[in-house]
Simulated scan of single mutants.
Amino acid sequence: MMSRTLPLSNKRIAHYFEQGTGEPLVLIHGVGMQALAWYPQIDDLSAEFRVISVDMPGHGESTALDTDAGLPQFVDWAIEFIETLDAGPVNLAGHSMGSLIAAGVAVTRPDLVKRVAVLNGVYRRTAEARHAVLQRAAELRSGTIDVETPLKRWFNADEAQRLAAQKVESWLKSVDLAGYATAYTAFASGDEVFADGWHTIACPALVLTGSDDPNSTPKMAKQMAGAARDGRAVVISDERHMVNLTAPEEVNRALRAWLHTEPQTETLKSEV
């Protein structure tokens, strides 16, 4: 796995890991994580694809955005990253906050996206759920970081999940607090920013979550997939928010099927 940096505008850099050759697959992680949070997908899918897993701004080794950056600014960053890579159109997959970014790119710059995958994404939260994430965002901005609560929400006590939970704990404890707070605030207020654009997404769209994820619910996944022109919802039983780490075989199987889905041509769409 090669560690690389890409110069962006305003003297910023994007850090990413790259492995494999073939069609490019760009992976964007969730808030508080880093590029290595996709390690089961990097290891497996790089046998067939050029896997590029990038640190979100303010995470890992990527330069942070301004502290008042919202979801549109994170989407603009992803667009610049893909354009600067000069590898488009790419297959673009995001997890949690990364899925909001991926969907935003697919809505605003469809020319850069061959296929889009949304893992454990949020879509039109309830008022109660929105209040909870906005409250957590405020706590982070005040300098308070709670690692134990998300770990209990994301993982169960099974021995099989312990290794993944330990990795996630180490990433949360090492994240830059200011970068984390900026991204989490954008995440907390970003579930409706591009929601109305889902019906314009024409490329193959995979929307995947765990049946037991209370925040990125199966209902949300089905709504997103149903809104897209070529969407497919996958719900993995007995899994929670970090499904790409706790059920890697099922997730990789779904991703591979998505990656082998042929995008519809304009002619075919007009004939349907």
Rank of each mutant, 00 (worst) to 15 (best):
L36V: 00
A14F: 02
I236T: 13
A64R: 05
G60K: 11
M56Y: 03
A132L: 14
D176R: 09
E169S: 14
A202R: 03
I82T: 09
F81G: 03
W198H: 07
R125F: 14
A138G: 11
E18N: 02
D44I: 02
K114I: 00
E249V: 12
G22V: 03
K167Q: 14
T144C: 03
P263D: 14
T63E: 08
V118A: 07
T84R: 09
P57W: 11
S170W: 02
N91S: 11
T126E: 11
M220Q: 15
S3T: 11
E249L: 12
F49Q: 04
P263Q: 08
A103H: 02
S3M: 09
A188R: 08
V272K: 13
E262Y: 08
V133I: 13
G190C: 00
D68M: 08
D76H: 08
Q135C: 07
E83D: 12
A225M: 01
M97L: 07
W258I: 10
L45T: 04
A102H: 02
L112P: 04
F49W: 05
D111P: 03
R253S: 15
N120F: 10
V26T: 01
T265I: 07
Y123P: 10
E148T: 06
I79F: 06
D86L: 04
T5H: 10
I201T: 11
T5Q: 14
F49T: 07
S99G: 03
V90T: 05
E271I: 08
L85I: 12
L27K: 02
H199E: 03
E18T: 03
E148H: 00
L255W: 13
S189K: 07
S270F: 11
L140D: 10
I52A: 06
R240G: 14
F187Y: 12
V113E: 04
A35G: 06
S237I: 04
